[in-house]
Every structure is written in C-alpha cells, then in structure tokens.
Design a binder for these strands. Structure first.
Lengths: 192, 192
DNA sequence: TGGCTCATGTAAGCCGTTACATGATTTT
DNA sequence: AAAATCATGTAACGGCTTACATGAGCCA
C-alpha cells in the first residue's frame, strides 16, 4: 500500500533512475552525468546540478551506488558504480509496466491555440517562431554524437526518435505557415 | 531590466495567459476553465485547481480581469471577463517573439534510452507500453470536440497538431517494435 | 436519498531550476 | 596571466500537483 510505484523503490523518482542508468553505461561522476544529460536526454528528461549531486548522495545512502574518491591531483573527484541492489532497482524500473510519465509544456502551441486573436501575419510569425525553436532543438540533437559502442544501440535509436519527432514538428510548421498565408480554410476538422 | 520577459508583464507566468486566453474565448468561471483545459490544452499545457483559483485572484488584483458574483440559487459562482488591460496583456504575450518554453518529461523514452540493459522481448514490451500510452492520449484528443465557432479555427488546428504528433509517435513505436522483434540492426545512425 | 456534477478554494509538499560559492587544473 | 574547463556542492525560491474541505443543486 504505497503511494507511489511499488514498495521496493518507494523513495526513488524517475530522475533517480536517470542517474542510475547513466552510471550503468559508464558515466561515473556527477559532473560527467550533468554533461552527458546535456547532450543526450536533455530534450526528453533534463537534470540540473541541484538534482544530480543530492541524488547521488541519496542513492549511496540507499546502497544503490557506491562511490570512492578518485581525485585528479588536488582536485576532488568522486567516481560511482552501481551495486547489485542498484542494478536490480534499475532493471525493475525498466521492466515495470505501470504508468509512464509523459508531460509537455509547449508555450508556442498554447499561443497557437489562442491565435484567433491574432492577424494572419501575426499568426504566421508565431508559427515561424515555433519552427525556429524546433530547428534549434533539431540541431542540438544532430550535433550530439553518442560515442559508438557495440552495446549501446538504444542511444542511437533515441537520437533517431528525437530527429523524427522534431522533424515532424518542423514540417507541420512549414505546412501551417503556408496554409495560413494562403488562407486555406481549416475545415478538415470541422464537425459534419 | 527585469528578470523575466518584459517589464509590462513581470508577475505573469505562462499559466496566467492560459487563464486569460480561456476567459477571452468565453470560458468564464474557474470551474469551466478547469474543465476546458482538461479537454483541450491538457496535453501540452496542464493546469489544476491549485493554480487556477489563485491565478484568477492575482489577475483580478492586477486589473487584468474583472469578476462578478453570479450564483446559481444559493450555489456560489463567479464569472470573469477581460479588462482592456487584460486584453492588451494577452495580445502582448501572443505577439512576443522572445523565447518559447518547450519542455518534455518522457519516462518511456528515458527507459528506451537505457534499454540496452533489457532483453529483446523486454524492449519490445516497453515500446508496446509506450505505444499504448500514446494511443490513449490520441483517443483523448480525438474525443475532445471543441465547440464549433466561426471565430475559433485555431482550436481545430491545435487538435490536428495533437493528432498528428501522437500519431507519429504511435507509428514510430509500431516500426520500432517490428525492427526490434526482427532483429534489424540499428545502423542508420552509426558513425561512418 | 444517494450519488454525481457544479463550484470555490486551501495546505502541504515535491520536484526542479537558478544562482551562487569554491577551488584546482588545463588551455590559450 | 587570464579564461575555460573540471569538479562538487548548497540556498532560495517557484511552480505545480495532490489531497482535502465545503457545500449547493440535480437526477435516478
């Protein structure tokens, strides 16, 4: 009778598994996790320092990761590895078929939803701004070259997903810009 | 020199404009806003009671909306309308071309990113769960029939966007399920 | 008369970001 | 010598969700 997920991983949030997963694929320090997130999961799951470092401490306290100091000269540095319990917790999450969080906050689309208050030119300008935004995201994803490893296919597949999704959005924007500019009446969705 | 957006609308967040926009299209009480959000913007901008009611008070205090009591018998009910300042603030936001918030939290994709730790069957099962999730969202969007009004084309266009986007995701899932099950080597994205 | 819908609101708490603080090492 | 990068962390705050509290009106 827990309030969140199963009793086995009560105090873990999705971001905990992000950290666990990163460590599993060989990303070993807080700093490295931060940077790897920036070039890989950022577009569908972000994480900041304010989360990562406290999270590492929690995971260590829970016995899911083990860290040891490995300084570079005088510069402090703590390297983490999964424990058996950590490996298990990660796998349990990965195969847990209960509800998947999916959330979006899309300010551009919200404006678009209210765009009846705009002139045609203003609406087109808005969609152009949305397109620009997703083109930047697309460029970011394209740039991120996950290091090639035989045992890391899913990084590439995820990149493909990102390219496809934001590519679709960019195409939708182009199409919509044209339709709005040419005054195509948006009737496909009107009731019969 | 403000920290957020322009000085004109310092203390307004995106959710404030959601409320403003809803009132503008004739959604007049907190309760109605709550319900309309559930069947329209929910999939790209959610809002709960805990936001809407305090927000209405803030907007009224700021002079952007005006509310008057309009009870149904003994049952309390407060109806809101935009003031000129509110109309202006909404329009200013709609045409403000500065940065658009776009955030996603996609737990399914995060699991997929780490799916090298899974067996093929488990990975396929995960993608199936993702597909199921987006099929539900799709059904929700399909069901939501925005009331037809000559001056509300963009509600339909937004619905079209939602159907297209989640439709794309569902197709991606189907394709990926097949490729994984048939052992298609994911090499399109591998470095040269 | 019991349950659903209409209707408004608050309190607690979670999750996360931003900004800052500190300092060593490497690169230019 | 300065600037960028490596590296770890904290404090304050903001936005949002969940859950609860309250009660009237409607319908089966």
């Amino acid at each position: 009778m827990s309030t969140r997920r199963s009793d086995l991983h009560q105090e873990l949030r999705v971001s905990s598994y992000l950290v666990l997963g990163m460590i599993r694929i060989g990303v070993r320090t807080g700093y490295e996790i931060r940077r790897r997130v920036e070039v890989s999961t950022r577009f569908f799951w972000a994480a900041s320092n304010g989360q990562i470092y406290p999270e590492l401490r929690r995971l260590e306290a829970a016995g899911l990761v083990r860290g040891h100091e490995d300084p570079t000269g005088e510069r402090q540095r703590k390297v983490f590895a999964l424990t058996a319990a950590g490996e298990e917790a990660l796998h349990a999450w990965l195969t847990d078929s209960s509800a998947l969080t999916f959330e979006q906050r899309d300010e551009g689309l919200l404006k678009f939803f209210f765009a009846d208050a705009l002139s045609t030119e203003e609406a087109v300008e808005l969609v152009r701004a949305m397109r620009h935004h997703h083109e930047l995201i697309l460029a970011g994803i394209q740039q991120a070259k996950p290091p090639y490893r035989e045992d890391r296919h899913f990084g590439y597949l995820t990149k493909g997903y990102g390219l496809g999704l934001h590519g679709w959005i960019v195409e939708w924007c182009k199409k919509t810009e044209h339709e709005l500019a040419n005054g195509v009446a948006p009737r496909e969705l009107a009731p019969a």
